[in-house]
Nucleic acid binder design. Sequence first.
RNA 1: CGGAGCGUGGCGCAGUCUGGUAGCGCACUUGACUGGGGGUCAAGAGGUCGCCGGUUCAAAUCCGGCCGCUCCGACCA
Length: 571
Amino acid sequence: MSGLFGRTLREAPADADSANHQLLLRSGLIVQLAAGVYSFLPPAWTTLLKIEQIIREEMVAAGSQEMRMPAIQPRELWEESGRADSYGPVLFNLKDRRERTMVLAPTHEESVTDLFRKVVQSYRDLPQSVFQMQTKFRDEPRPRGGLVRVREFIMKDAYTFDVDDDAFQLNYLAMRQAYYNIFKRCGVPVVAVQADSGAIGGKQSEEFIFLTEIGEDNIILCSSCGYAANQERAEFTRSQAAGTVGDLEEVETPGVTTIEGLANFLDIPAQSTAKAAFFLVDGQPTFAVIRGDLEVNELKLINALDALEARPLLPEEVEAAGWVAGYASPIGVDPARVIADPSVVDAGGLVAGANRVGMHARNVTYGRDWTAATVADIGMAQAGDACAQCGGSLEMKRGIELGHIFKLGTRYAEPMDATFLDSDGERRTPIMGCYGIGVERLMAAVVQANHDELGIVWPPAVAPYDVHVVPLGGSDEVASAVAEVESALSGAGLNVLVDDREERAGVKFNDADLLGAPLRITIGSRGLKQGQVELKLRQDSDSSSVPLADAGSSARDALAAIDRESSLIAT
RNA sequence: CGGAGCGUGGCGCAGUCUGGUAGCGCACUUGACUGGGGGUCAAGAGGUCGCCGGUUCAAAUCCGGCCGCUCCGACCA
């Protein structure tokens, strides 16, 4: 340990917020170079290699072949798929000496699709499943949380190609199961949730989420039926709004520009109002209508309109569109520009704006007073809403996305003209899937899920060291006992860290707790008088003594026991 | 990109308001004592006070600009 590259810190650097970030820094495992850019020192690298190996084994077991694609890619490849712009700001651009623009790849759908069209010709070559462990580069707008969101990271990314949807399902389910196995073996509990596919594209996707308060995603969960979805796509049942339909009438509402103000002014519940929200959707001003007590989910809006991007309209743009902020009404608006949530379509007699400053309208009713070209779920699910599956009460929790699996369909194969010749002689487009895991992020989650107030408590499967040997005192008998134990442990195939520093016992114990090897063996003259050494599991508070000669076999037994145990409790 | 905060030795911080010797704890080096849960004593090494410019006899401190990092949001696997 005296020769270890890296040192432990008694105090965590001030920049670190979460437990995993603080512990990774304090234990000397990672060092930051720039925002979202880290070095991984020898113990961290050992753990990352172990995590990679677990992933590798599970991917191979699921029928995938490991390969390797380039990180530097010509930008034209990205223009072919149409993502040069949509992925835009996240792409690291650089120029080679011939002034050709290259990008550092943030993901590899384009490259693998390019490979497919160069390598695969026939249905006889399908199905295919390939994966790689590879460094990705993403110029994130805001790196955060230590290793949780970084700009350079190792991703295990896998890609599948199938002749049709049915065949694809087999690959997808195999990957899904492999993901559960991977996270379980790493000691991190996860829940699979329905998600939006985001910039990757495609039709369906599931995220594997580690639920933790330091997560950056909001997850909607139903404890009654098990429904789980990212908030950005979670469905929910709208509560019934009591609304009787009367005649349309205007009411003066001076200075009332918010739903809350309106509800107070008229002494009605927010559910009895309709809210207007204005967005620029793929360059088109769009009038979204939703019940006053709900919020618009921009992602659902984008998906409902089959659009690429949306943002709130600026005040001057609202005005230019002829809409009156605070008093906007869907009445009289070109229905082609209007999208309505079912909450306002099913409810009659709502209070909405009257399109004049200081005026609202009562009994506004869909179908009679206004219509929308699109009626779709554009509501944001919140804690307490009713589950769309079973009616139970939804909860919301924070979580970290550790893995994401996507059904891509023909999103890439089609624009990039990747096809194969089917058995009937027809040229067809393959159904693709892609499957990603952030390796360093997974390590951060392992630490977050396995620590106490003293330090990391590594699950044996991914621990940098299996055994932390603490010699106490500098006597010859201790030194020879340490040598004997070390050789017995190494002979048993265990990775051993010997604290050979001239430090006091307390310093060594504290560092052992911080570094978190599953098993600690203390060797001091006190025990050696009885011919014994002390074994202590990091996860336990008590220790036991064993004869010096049995140290190797006892260590192996103890580690095997907790490995079995942890694989039983992690889900 | 909007909002907030921070930048002084490896880590944690004080000093800045009110300009004048760069300081504390931990860590590090050497020696002695000590020796089973972050020891004691002694002697040391280590800092362009983020960078550039300005004001001033004099700037860590005041002024201007820039850069970096963190957090909230926007965005994003």
